[in-house]
């Protein structure tokens, strides 16, 4: 059970950061994951009054505040037009609309959960994280760092032209995914982000140039096999390592073909 002694609506990021340096204190995201943990929190720090709940589109970037909800991500027309709906596809099966109306980007990325659809898609979009203290860090690096007491302020993605697609496999809609996969091609280089292995998402780049000669069913399948071969998979109640490895190749192939709109 989660207990909280004191609730503070932070008046500035600095105040929130200072409060968060105490181990017994905690930043509140949408509270969904945190509520499933057993913990006695001294001060729960709410960032909702700091204007971090918007997606700002600039000439070159989308800046996504940490309090933006998964539903906002799903419904943002410009973000989804730019990424061929990969972000909406990634979040649309996370529990339900009511859940996505409060689950946050900050909680999803800070948590670096193995099953995360959110981490998977933003890795493929080459996102960067902006932390209050540590500043800007590539998400690929942040995903590998242990959780610390910094505040994740926003995610930044460059609006570079990109072919991208998202695929995931679930036993049933709204269940945790068995495997998540996002592929993208930036400046001619293909990469695949694969999560829920059940380990957290990791990026594999097409170092061998398997897709350099063009994308068709065969080259996409070869890239799928290559990606599966580069990653380690584990077993849990949702699937075995061998099963995950098999479907990894298939999902990567499908994602590459979908990104190129090859039917």
């Amino acid at each position: 059970m989660l207990t909280i002694r004191q609730y503070v609506r932070a008046e500035s990021l600095e105040q929130a950061y200072e409060l968060n340096q105490k181990k017994a204190n905690l930043i509140l995201g949408g509270m969904h994951w945190m509520k499933m943990t057993t913990r006695s929190v001294d001060t729960a720090i709410d960032l909702s009054g700091l204007g971090l709940d918007t997606i700002v589109e600039t000439d070159h970037t989308f800046e996504i505040g940490c309090m933006v909800t998964l539903r906002q991500l799903e419904q943002h027309p410009a973000l989804n037009a730019w990424c061929s709906h990969a972000v909406a596809d990634a979040v649309k099966d996370i529990v339900g609309v009511q859940f996505r109306n409060t689950a946050t980007v900050g909680g999803s990325i800070f948590g670096r959960y193995g099953f995360s659809d959110v981490l998977t898609v933003f890795l493929a979009l080459n996102a960067r994280v902006v932390c209050h203290h540590a500043g800007e860090i590539p998400l690929e690096q942040y995903a590998q760092m242990p959780a610390d007491r910094d505040i994740l302020v926003k995610l930044v993605v460059d609006k570079r032209p990109m072919q991208v697609s998202y695929q995931a496999m679930r036993h049933a809609r709204t269940d945790f995914p068995i495997l998540t996969c996002a592929v993208s091609c930036v400046d001619g280089v293909w990469q695949a982000s694969v999560g829920a292995r059940p380990h957290k998402a990791a990026l594999v780049r097409d170092q061998e140039g398997l897709l350099c000669g063009g994308v068709d069913e065969t080259s996409a399948a070869r890239f799928g096999d290559y990606v599966a071969g580069q990653l380690n998979f584990g077993s849990n109640m949702r699937g075995s390592a061998a099963y995950r490895s098999q479907i990894c190749g298939v999902l990567v192939q499908r994602a590459v073909l979908a990104a190129c709109e090859v039917k």
Binding site: I4, H32, M36, T102
Partner: peptide, 25 residues
């Protein structure tokens, strides 16, 4: 635990799960 939707209410006209919202918020 945010799974079933039984506790759905509107906050500022948006449906949310009241089992996972602090009243203070």
């Amino acid at each position: 635990s945010s799974n079933c939707g039984l506790c759905t209410v509107f906050v500022d006209d948006k449906p949310v799960l009241s089992c996972s919202v602090l009243a203070a918020r």
